[in-house]
Write a protein that binds this DNA or RNA. Sequence first.
DNA 1: GCGACAG
DNA 2: ATCTTGTCGC
Length: 244
Amino acid sequence: MDNPGSGADLKLRHVHPWDLSPAEARALQMRLAPRVVREDRLGEIRRVAGVDVGFEEGGRITRAVVSVLSWPELAPLEDVVARSPTRFPYVPGLLSFRELPAVLEALEGLSALPDLLFCDGQGIAHPRRFGIAAHLGVLTDLPAIGVGKTRLIGTHEAVPEERGAWRALYDKEEVIGAVLRTRTRVKPVYVSVGHCLSLETAVELVLKAAPRYRLPEPIRRADRLASQSTGRDQVLHGGVCSSP
DNA sequence: GCGACAG
DNA sequence: ATCTTGTCGC
C-alpha cells in the first residue's frame, strides 16, 4: 500500500502542522526546543547525509536534496531529490518551516536512513535554540549537525587562520555554537548542535567531513544537486533520482 | 525607535 | 535562496 518494498520509513516522533502563521511557528519552536538532545548519543557511524535546498520557478518550487555518503570514506552512495510547491516565505528564524516539508519528502525516498545529518543552516545557534538542523533532528530523531555559511545570531572572538581553529559562539553568556575554520585563511563556518551530539563532537565531525573544502562533503554534494542544477551547468552521470 | 537577520 | 560575467588569486 504505502512504500511497498522500499523506503526509509521515517517515524516522525510528533508530526505537526506546517501551514502556520509566523507567530504560531515561533510558539511551536519554543515548545519543541526542549526536546533537542545536546549530548552525545550516537551509534556507529557508517553513512552520513548532507541536506540542502534550492528553489526553482522564482521560488515557487522548493527542491530538497539528501545526499548519502559512506563514512569515513565520504564516497557517494545515494541521492534523493524532492520537489514541491513552496508554502512558506523566508523569514529569519523560521527557515525550517519553509524548507523542511520538502526535506522530509526527500528523506522518505531514501533506501535506508543515514546515521548522521549535516544540515545547511543553524542548529541551536538560533534565537529560540531551534534552527533547521535542530528541528530536523528532533522530528527524525537522527543525530544532526547545523553548518551555516553565515551567522544568524551570536558573537565571538576572532578565529585563528589555521584549519581546525575555532571559537565559541555566544548569545549573552551562553555557548550556542562554534565558529570553525575548516580551511586555512578561508572564511569560517558556523557549527552548532542539531541533535544527539555535543558541540565538541559536532566540530570534530565537521572537520572530518570537510577534509579539503570549506563545507562538509555531504553538504557540498547536496548543494550542487539542489542549486547548481538549475543555474549552472550540470555534468553528472546518474538519472533523475537515487544514484551516485 | 533603530539595526540585524540561516537560506 | 535567486537574478547574473568576468575576474583576481592560490
